[in-house]
Design a protein around this nucleic acid. Structure first.
Lengths: 357, 357
DNA sequence: CTGTTAGCGCTTTCAT
DNA sequence: ATGAAAGCGCTAACAG
């Protein structure tokens, strides 16, 4: 409980004025070698922690931050990310930031391309990017690199980019975990169905590819010989899915569990429910409203969450602190993988935002 | 992105000075009915949110907060609670609070009694209490109630007290969940061992009693007829446990899983490991260092966390905001029940404190 | 290059 | 009872 050390204290000990200390702390303006050395000596002796809220209050400068991510739908994944971003903005209300959220169609590579082309032309001090398509994203970030505009990824990182940081879950481990969970709760000899979506432009999302690899690796590492069956499924023509599914279940009678590697687990859950199939366990990902409903009604057994709210919050918080203080930033940041069940979902943080926000 | 509304704005619109607005907002000092009505009218029209960091900066008053909880050991549950409390203090560094942490022996009712007797005599503006024994706690809180000193519980709430708020997990649901998990991963016909500690003064901890009830209720609700076997176990004479356990396993050959309702799961985990028993699955609670080690080494299958860090953080944060603003406070606050496995433990928030703190 | 000063939004003191 | 003004720690603008 020692006394907080202030800029004024440092100035006194170094025999300079507070203005000079501020200049040195933030590398702004000219300072004599002598003054710099005196202040740096003091700084090395004391543990000075600037108070960002007070800084913000007097900070005149405005930061322009552009945020781009897939279209936001109520109760879905990207809405949580956005909420987290907004919460950080709220918490750092003293810092003046102008932000703009620009979204694209994550199932349509052409939409992404055209939006990113627009963004490239805009002025910004920093960006937050929720990427989907690797090549389009790299094209954007190359330009940002050239212009020295820092950017942070949420949801997943793109390999060939050089972000200031990323906040995402470990998608490979997510798939690996789902494999462990499903095999823990179904009979040893059951088949497992898996489902993966296809996108316009014929490129799979980064994330589901990684999850699938994790899923398969677990099975082979544990020498489990459950048959894995791909379930035909279309996001673009959802009216066909009922037919696909009934076909699938007619042909495969030994399915004990299904793993859905994208966020649309509720579709399978509802199909099973409507057709009174209750001997198939479901492990799904993402706490979307429909998935949560399905979990509560016991149609999904385990639901994996990847803390999108936290991802958004941390991305914006990190960006603000970086912009204001230029502090070094940790690049790789994995959020927890949450395992939810019917019993625990009601206590989950997202519902307690009023409190835990 | 409308402009933030400040006290000065309210003052102008109500035709009074900022001082008067402040007096009304915080019920300090005398204000004429006329001024009060004018200001309250404006307040009802605008959404004014005071900035606690700026308030804190100018706030002269000091708050004395006393924190009492069981003794703190490195890597264990109560250390996390303390860390959360300290993190809140850090985040609200602008608010001047003098705090004192006073701990007792949670396995010894007499220790608790004597510490609480001391605390009763002390001056404080508020308290945070980590309770263990109901009667001793009620005696303390009765006195606090009499003196109008607000207090917040962490870890669990005591029924006959009237706290400002409590932050705990739902221990009943925790037991219920553990029951679901263990029965999901062991053969249908297996027996289940459970373990519960005894304390000096012959009173069980509130928490384990609730967990046990949840555990048993799940079995009967689901009409599961696994035999449940109590495992003899002593926290006071740990040297006897090896003998107790070997005796137990000699007599019970059909045990498929064990549930440990207190935080000492690692003891069973290590026993099983050392004796090369690998056909018994373990579900335990609390992310203590030893439990985490056991989880990582696959000796524990599911480990339940009750976010002690978050409990401590929220307790202190809530208390500070209440003391400064007298805002209404939500009394019942349940933290999430986290389900951790070997795969997810490395991404758990507690290890990322540098980032997620 | 550097010290001084005004001002951010809020609370508190001091006159009135 | 109330307005004016000082001051919290920090940054920015202004003299010199």
């Amino acid at each position: 409980m020692q006394n907080k050390i202030r800029i004024k204290d440092i100035a006194e000990r170094a025999g300079v004025s507070t203005g000079t200390v501020d200049r040195i702390l933030h590398n702004r303006g000219k300072v004599s070698k002598k003054a710099r050395e005196a202040v740096e000596k003091v700084l090395s002796e004391v543990d000075y922690k600037p108070n960002i809220h007070i800084s913000g209050m007097s900070l005149k400068r405005k930061y322009r931050i552009i945020i781009t991510m897939p279209h936001i739908f109520p109760g879905e994944y990207w809405e949580s990310i956005r909420n987290g971003i907004l919460r950080a903005l709220e918490e750092y209300q003293n810092i003046r930031v102008d932000y703009q959220i620009i979204t694209y169609n994550q199932y349509d590579i052409f939409s992404c391309r055209s939006i990113f082309d627009q963004i490239i032309k805009m002025e910004a001090d920093a960006m937050i990017i929720g990427p989907t398509f690797a090549a389009e994203t790299v094209k954007l970030t190359n330009e940002l690199d050239k212009r020295s505009i820092p950017y942070i990824f949420v949801d997943s990182a793109i390999k060939q980019s050089f972000p200031l940081a990323f906040f995402s879950s470990d998608h490979y481990t997510c798939g690996y975990l789902m494999s462990k969970l499903i095999t823990s709760i179904i009979p040893k000899s059951s088949d497992i169905g898996i489902l993966q979506a296809v996108r316009i432009g014929n490129e799979s999302a980064n994330t589901t590819v990684l999850r699938k690899k994790g899923f398969m690796d677990y099975l082979s590492e544990k020498k489990l010989d459950n048959k894995v069956l791909s379930i035909p499924f279309s996001l673009l023509e959802p009216e066909k899915n009922n037919f696909f599914l009934s076909q699938f279940f007619k042909e495969n009678k030994n399915v004990g569990g299904i793993v859905v590697l994208n966020s649309r687990g509720n579709i399978i859950a509802n199909y099973l429910h409507e057709n009174n199939i209750d001997n198939i366990k479901l492990v799904c990902v993402d706490l979307t409203q429909p998935n949560i409903e399905a979990l509560k009604k016991d149609k999904i057994y385990f639901l994996i969450g990847q803390e999108p709210e936290q991802q958004g919050f941390m991305a914006m918080k990190t960006l603000i602190e970086y912009l204001v203080f230029r502090n070094p930033v940790q690049v790789e940041n994995y959020v927890p993988l949450d395992i939810l069940t019917k019993e625990t979902i009601n206590y989950y943080r997202e519902f307690n935002e009023a409190i835990f926000g």
